[in-house]
Design a protein around this nucleic acid. Structure first.
Lengths: 196, 196
DNA sequence: TCGTGACGTTACAGACCGGTAACACCCTAG
DNA sequence: CTAGGGTGTTACCGGTCTGTAACGTCACGA
């Protein structure tokens, strides 16, 4: 039944996948509807039958990427079942890998930069997804026995966010190259002051 | 001779000032040449007599804002002459003030996000200016007697970069609200391990 | 007085953008 | 066989974008 090729996926899925990739690489305002449909092997009418507007497509893309990121968290649990501290270190490692491999930052953060209109419909989605992301990291830190879990989670969040932006400004050889050292140092420091 | 009003500045200066402001608020791709010239009280031809292209204007704007930031560093020296540690704390305070007051991030970082083309002429300027900015902070940390000056400077850089992006995603009440606590904690921590 | 250069105005080119209308096609379910 | 829904194709609308051409205006300095 299924034949495995990407080309055989339903147009809507192909569009969503292609749009995520192109938005990520070229930015939201840097890519047009025509370019997306062409790369997805379909056409503009089909896109507008599945998505109300470009803004709607943007929002669906953000939700889809957040969903993929969610799958990564499940992997932490399956790879280190119950060991929350190991999962936290896995988070650091995965983050560092992204910094080295990707070159472009977080889709949500990039979207927030590009969509400067304060009433843009995507902004509330960005905020919602970013807050969920933060909650997960706070919970992980707390479950790992860190005393000031919120503060460590927020510090790590900002550090990663900054690193992903820095990569885009000055490349992987800049300050972000020290990300692992910084993050691990922080974890050690916070474990030291932990008051279970 | 001079009559003080902004309107009396030379067209080139008005354009540069207006463009900086509008690029900062609405993003580079979110603002057109016509909007800039109209807000600057001039016209398109005059703009193109002073700037080769929009890309050229972007670059000149980035240099101008970097120049303004440079003036802030001189202020640190005049307000705390010789006291490098006080200057470092002043840097933290000024950064925190920006986070609360601004809402939009660093112009260079935002530009790097928006201008995703790897060969865009502004990218080398962004890198150059960001590296100069980093060097200044490293020097300040070193002169303040911090042992691992580079590592502290890079950590503070990423923390601020991340905070300025986070403000755009989730607002001032998010993780960036703890910026001062994080930064001051780091400085204390690095002073503790300092080997003068 | 004259002319020179900076500036303003209008119009336009050529491209791209998001979004829609109308119609043809094909596969599948009934 | 047939009807219908999902899809593809073409053409188009109105708007916006960067950048240029041609011409008019005005102040200032030799």
């Amino acid at each position: 039944m299924e034949d495995g090729t990407v080309e055989r996926a339903r147009p809507r899925d192909r569009i969503l996948e292609t749009a995520q990739d192109m938005f990520h690489k070229h930015g939201i305002k840097g890519v047009g509807i025509d370019a997306i449909t062409e790369a997805a092997g379909t056409n503009k009418m089909t896109l507008y039958r599945h998505f109300d507007s470009k803004d709607d497509l943007i929002i669906q893309c953000l939700r889809a990427t957040a969903c993929k990121a969610g799958a990564m968290w499940e992997k932490f649990e399956t790879e280190h079942p119950g060991d929350k501290l190991a999962q936290l270190h896995a988070w650091v490692r995965v983050a560092a890998d992204m910094l080295r491999a990707d070159g472009r930052g977080c889709d949500m953060a990039n979207a927030a930069v590009e969509l400067s209109e304060t009433d843009h419909p995507a902004r509330r989605v960005i905020k919602e997804l970013k807050e969920a992301q933060r909650d997960r990291l706070v919970t992980l830190c707390r479950d790992a026995g860190i005393g000031q879990a919120e503060l460590l989670a927020d510090t790590l969040s900002l550090l990663l966010e900054g690193a992903r932006v820095s990569v885009q400004s000055v490349g992987t050889e800049g300050p972000s190259a020290q990300f692992v050292r910084m993050a691990e140092g922080l974890i050690v420091s916070f474990r030291g002051t932990a008051a279970g």
